[in-house]
Computed example of a mutant assay.
Amino acid sequence: MYKLFFLSLLSFCLACGTASRNSNQNDKYKNDFTSILNNYDLKGSILIYDPQEQEYYSNDFEWADRGFLPASTFKIPNSIIALESSVLRSDTSILKWDGQKRDFENWEKDLTLREAFQTSCVPCFQEIARKIGVANMKTYLNKLHYNGMDVRTENMDSFWLKGNSQISCFEQIDFLERFISKKLPILNTTRETMLRVFLIEEGKNYKLSGKTGWSYNEIDNNGWFVGFLEKDEKKYYFALNATPKDPKRMEKFTEGRKQAVYDALKTMKLM
């Protein structure tokens, strides 16, 4: 009886959460965001959340609710878990290069955590994941409520790059908001370190922080850019997920992921 009551209560809470989110979806910039993606030969979703107004804006809310491999956006929780479990101590912790050939020349050297994060050094974070280990990774992901990850011994250093792990734009923003609003059960030192790791650029009255991601599932390329904007003591969260319209035309894909978000924020007069 108690179990049935608990399950009913859980279902009710989940339904309320979904209803609340759906009621805050705003189509105001739908056409603008679609045009922006078209400019970069992309199809997908730009999702922006204004917590001050509790409004979500997107060109495609259904896409924003679909799960995709997190790819290098998983470097966010991977870094947090490494810091929480003392695999790494700070943003200046050194990740040693093993001398092996890597995909990019700027990965072929010793890197600090922040440098590895900013250059998206895949081998660096694969080594971090191996040091964390399967049991610790599962424990911390559960603690952080970072759901949808398929973590097993055989895929320990690749579960975020290929396979069945999934996260949506809405879930990316939920995680980032809990991080910024100090709702994640992590140390203040971890949070402050991650704020330094995250930072991409800083202007006179704003800071923009984020992480890109790119996965390939043998069918198509899938790109991410997730993060947050701090401006005039207000915060805004964003998550882009997109694929190239034409798999044979990838010229705009790499920079287009980030630039589309910049253009969307400018359209909303936030930058």
Rank of each mutant, 00 (worst) to 15 (best):
residue 51 P to L: 14
residue 149 M to W: 04
residue 43 K to D: 12
residue 86 S to Y: 10
residue 116 A to G: 12
residue 8 S to V: 13
residue 63 W to L: 03
residue 89 R to M: 11
residue 14 L to P: 09
residue 242 A to C: 11
residue 245 K to L: 14
residue 18 T to E: 10
residue 153 T to H: 12
residue 230 E to M: 03
residue 14 L to Y: 10
residue 41 D to L: 00
residue 215 S to A: 15
residue 142 N to W: 04
residue 179 F to G: 02
residue 58 S to V: 03
residue 118 Q to I: 08
residue 19 A to L: 12
residue 55 E to I: 15
residue 89 R to G: 07
residue 138 K to F: 06
residue 203 G to H: 10
residue 251 E to P: 07
residue 80 I to A: 03
residue 66 R to Y: 13
residue 168 S to Y: 07
residue 9 L to K: 04
residue 58 S to K: 07
residue 160 W to F: 13
residue 248 K to E: 13
residue 85 S to Q: 10
residue 128 I to D: 08
residue 115 E to Q: 14
residue 194 M to P: 04
residue 167 I to Q: 04
residue 61 F to G: 05
residue 142 N to P: 00
residue 177 E to G: 01
residue 66 R to V: 02
residue 55 E to T: 15
residue 262 Y to S: 09
residue 82 A to G: 11
residue 93 S to E: 13
residue 80 I to N: 07
residue 227 G to F: 09
residue 228 F to P: 05
residue 233 E to R: 11
residue 122 V to R: 01
residue 66 R to P: 00
residue 8 S to I: 12
residue 39 N to C: 10
residue 28 K to P: 08
residue 86 S to V: 08
residue 212 T to W: 05
residue 89 R to H: 07
residue 261 V to A: 02
residue 177 E to P: 03
residue 222 N to W: 00
residue 170 F to E: 02
residue 224 W to Y: 09
residue 201 E to P: 03
residue 85 S to M: 06
residue 17 G to C: 00
residue 216 Y to L: 06
residue 217 N to P: 04
residue 134 V to M: 14
residue 237 Y to M: 05
residue 255 E to G: 15
residue 204 K to L: 14
residue 268 M to A: 11
residue 202 E to I: 05
residue 35 S to F: 08
residue 191 R to N: 02
residue 219 I to L: 14
residue 111 L to M: 10
residue 65 D to M: 01
residue 205 N to D: 15
residue 88 L to W: 03
residue 33 F to V: 05
residue 246 D to N: 15
residue 105 E to I: 15
residue 62 E to M: 05
residue 63 W to K: 06
residue 225 F to G: 00
residue 252 K to I: 10
residue 205 N to F: 06
residue 28 K to G: 07
residue 232 D to I: 07
residue 196 R to H: 11
residue 131 K to W: 05
residue 49 Y to G: 06
residue 228 F to S: 06
residue 220 D to I: 14
residue 202 E to K: 15
residue 97 W to G: 08
residue 198 F to T: 11
residue 37 L to F: 11
residue 103 D to N: 10
residue 194 M to G: 00
residue 167 I to K: 01
residue 51 P to Q: 14
residue 225 F to T: 01
residue 176 L to F: 10
residue 72 S to V: 04
residue 177 E to A: 13
residue 29 Y to S: 00
residue 175 F to M: 09
residue 116 A to E: 02
residue 160 W to A: 02
residue 185 P to Q: 11
residue 22 N to K: 04
residue 10 L to H: 04
residue 96 K to P: 06
residue 115 E to N: 00
residue 102 R to Y: 14
residue 176 L to E: 04
residue 19 A to Q: 07
residue 160 W to I: 08
residue 163 G to D: 09
residue 226 V to K: 08
residue 185 P to D: 11
residue 149 M to P: 07
residue 61 F to C: 09
residue 72 S to L: 09
residue 106 N to L: 01
residue 161 L to W: 01
residue 96 K to G: 02
residue 266 K to V: 01
residue 245 K to Y: 05
residue 99 G to A: 08
